[in-house]
Design a protein around this nucleic acid. Structure first.
Lengths: 184, 184
DNA sequence: GTCTATATTCCGATAGAC
DNA sequence: GTCTATCGGAATATAGAC
């Protein structure tokens, strides 16, 4: 049993990554939840408030993810990360980073700052995990860990976008290409 | 001297890749051009008509691009392709593929089909150009040409998105990483 | 915390004059 | 081909009762 506020957050996130920020409305949230427009505004007075909550939701989720895989072997961690994107692709949605990037110039400065913090956290985790794997020999790096992290991140989040247009086979091919690149 | 219709198309494309499909309005187009709302509707009765024109505009542009580089050496062609994205990044805009992918579920079937055709054309050009470079020895492939094409495309179009959030240094790093991967 | 009711603004779109 | 004028609808947001 989750609170109305939590239900709004989850649904808003799905709409954000499903249709885009400017394509969903308060009524897209209130109707499925069986509540009224005003009730959503009670929890999130403005739409930017809702957007910030979505970012906070992903920040928390990513923190829990890193804690869950902490202690596992580095290559295994990367595979868990990539498998998370597979579930995004299967749901027909896209990564939150790409969703906010596209609507970037329609976002308030506060949202932008929150997203910068979140995105850098993801990049830093990827970078340190790649270094970790190179140290123990499970991962092969042909460039700096930071560059490889950026390459992997853009590959996988754009794969959720591209596969909407050209189909899920392309998502699978991109994911496999990443793994081929970083394994011996 | 370009026609009003052409000016509308160019501006609509910039808005589409600058703010997103649902974030720009007919008045965002009419005001800068010094015309009225109704004049834009005369040329493009509905907003989906405008979206289709944007796709057609990019299809034509890409065809002209491939003709311009035809005859050049394969690696050089890829570099021209990547440099085109540098100009997108510098303008603060994103690649049309990512822009439409994010708003995919807000698009009509006709727009989606047009985008599928355009995107596959880009992928096919990249694939055949990579094969060409492998044959003449200028390009190194560690995976199938098709997979490498998908990897490069997602890297570079997502780089225009990511760099909005984390800065242009990341765009440069991703671009360089692509070149490192495919050269000896 | 949710409701009814409403204010306000903006959007996409059309009719008809010039 | 562009204009004025306007329609119908939807969106974000708020006031005040319960």
């Amino acid at each position: 049993m989750s609170s109305t506020k939590d239900q709004i957050t989850v649904l808003a996130d799905e709409l954000m990554r499903g249709k885009g920020y400017n394509a969903f409305s308060y009524s897209d949230i209130s109707k499925p939840l069986g509540i009224k427009n005003a009730a959503v505004h009670y929890h999130f007075p403005t739409k930017p408030d809702l957007a910030r909550e979505i970012v906070a939701y992903h920040s928390d989720s990513f923190t829990r993810f890193t804690e869950r895989v902490e202690g596992k072997e580095a290559l295994s961690k990367i595979k868990f990360f990539l498998n998370f994107y597979t579930s995004i692709q299967l749901s027909g949605r896209i990564c939150v980073i790409g969703a906010f990037a596209t609507d970037w110039n329609a976002m308030t400065e506060e949202i932008q700052q929150d997203m910068q913090g979140f995105t850098n956290t993801v990049i830093e985790w990827l970078t340190s995990t790649l270094k970790e794997g190179e140290s123990n020999g499970s991962i092969k790096l042909s460039d700096t860990a930071d560059s490889e992290a950026l390459s992997i991140l853009t590959n996988i989040f754009a794969a959720t976008q591209l596969s909407r247009i050209t189909g899920s086979d392309h998502f699978a091919a991109i994911k496999q290409n990443i793994l081929n690149r970083i394994t011996h």
